[in-house]
Amino acid sequence: MNIFRLAGDMTHLASVLVLLLKIHTIKSCAGVSLKTQELYVIVFATRYLDIFTSFVSIYNSLMKLIFLGSSFSIVWYMRYHKAVHRTYDREQDTFRHWFLMLPCILLALLIHEKFTFFEVMWTFSLYLEAVAILPQLVLLQRTRNIDNLTGQYIFLLGGYRGFYILNWIYRYFTEPHYVHWITWISGLVQTLLYADFFYYYFLSWKNNKKLQLPA
């Protein structure tokens, strides 16, 4: 474990807590894409298949349970909690996210480190996580301005992968033959997808005005 990875995990944890806080306290999921949340449930479900078979550390297992639990409960809230479900704008959140999964599963079947069920599922979850934010970013473009909590959620979610990139660089230089191109490239793509959001988020923070995304 290194400081970059810990910072990444804490930033990731903060992002899901901010979203849960928003949904649980003000009972609203306005501006949040259910499609992205559903994709994250699939990302964690396929990423942590080995949660009961391979034990790395208490920390590792605890964080996996937190990410699985939080992503499932966010989807549950948005789908089945009456008050929250009412604030979900279904008309705008229309990204065909199942079409995102198909290329990811095909790519995972083609490009992976080992052709085993676990490895292909794990690789699929990496590719899917890289694009999982797209429905959310599309929704933001449509609804234009976003509330602070949703903005913070996306900012933290994008930031965590940025910390992971620093972690990969650190591990590359400190651990012999630590080379994982698949992880590095999908992580880089994921972070780049947030780039324009980061730009407008920073602008709104600098000018201290509400976050407005261009049409």
Partner: peptide, 10 residues
């Protein structure tokens, strides 16, 4: 963590 695995990451 041994270098050649990254399954220790979340």
């Amino acid at each position: 963590e041994d270098g050649d695995s990254n399954k220790d990451e979340l």
